[in-house]
Computed example of a mutant assay.
Amino acid sequence: MKCREGCGACCIAPSISSPIPGMPQGKPAGERCLQLSVENLCNIFGKPERPAVCSAFAADPDVCGNSSEDAIKLIGWWEQMTAA
């Protein structure tokens, strides 16, 4: 599966513990990443300062569902199920 351009769910729903430019402590689940544009595109895509966890994310129907709304719900659910 390819990412849906302008989805942004992977930049909102999960927590990210790695430093992100403008967010040195990472971000909590459900908070919009500061690097996510108003068009829901990553401002640091392909740049070395992009966290490895973000670069490693691969879209999958089990995670992304059929829409951006599905993705927010599913990624949020996965976040809750895997939280320590």
Score class of each variant (00 low, 15 high):
Pro21Val: 02
Cys7Asp: 11
Ala59Phe: 03
Pro61Gly: 00
Cys33Gln: 11
Gly46Pro: 02
Ala59Thr: 14
Met23Asn: 10
Glu79Thr: 10
Gly76Asp: 06
Cys11Asn: 11
Ser67Cys: 05
Asp70Tyr: 02
Met81Pro: 00
Cys64Tyr: 04
Gly8Phe: 01
Lys47Val: 04
Pro21Gly: 07
Ala9Tyr: 02
Ile72Phe: 12
Lys73Leu: 05
Gly22Ile: 02
Glu49His: 06
Leu41Asp: 09
Ser15Pro: 12
Pro28His: 12
Phe45Gln: 06
Ser37Asn: 08
Glu31Gly: 01
Asp62Pro: 00
Cys11His: 05
Val53Asn: 06
Ala56Tyr: 04
Leu36Met: 09
Ala29Gly: 07
Leu36Ser: 08
Phe57Trp: 11
Leu41Arg: 14
Lys27Asp: 00
Pro24Thr: 02
Leu36Arg: 03
Trp77Asp: 07
Gln25Ala: 15
Asp60Tyr: 10
Lys47Gln: 15
Lys73Met: 02
Glu5Ile: 02
Glu39Lys: 10
Gly8Pro: 06
Leu34Pro: 07
Asp60Thr: 03
Pro14Asn: 13
Met81Asn: 11
Pro28Tyr: 05
Thr82Glu: 12
Glu49Ile: 09
Gly26Lys: 14
Ile12Arg: 05
Phe57Tyr: 13
Cys54Tyr: 01
Lys2Arg: 12
Val53Ile: 15
Ser37Phe: 04
Pro21His: 09
Gly65Val: 07
Ala56Ile: 00
Phe57Ser: 11
Ser55His: 06
Cys33Thr: 00
Cys7Lys: 14
Glu5Val: 00
Arg32Ser: 10
Gly30Cys: 13
Gly30Ile: 07
Ala58Ser: 04
Lys47Cys: 14
Asp62Ala: 14
Gly8Gln: 04
Arg4Val: 11
Asp62Cys: 00
Ser55Pro: 00
Leu34Gln: 05
Ser67Glu: 09
Ser17Cys: 07
Ala9Ser: 12
Pro19Arg: 12
Arg32Ile: 08
Pro19Gly: 04
Cys64Gly: 07
Cys64Arg: 05
Pro21Asn: 05
Ser17Met: 06
Cys64Gln: 03
Gln80Tyr: 01
Pro21Ile: 01
Val38Pro: 11
Trp77Ser: 08
Gly6Trp: 04
Thr82Val: 10
Val38Ser: 12
Ile72Lys: 14
Gly46Ile: 11
Cys3Gln: 09
Gly65Lys: 11
Ile12His: 05
Arg32Trp: 07
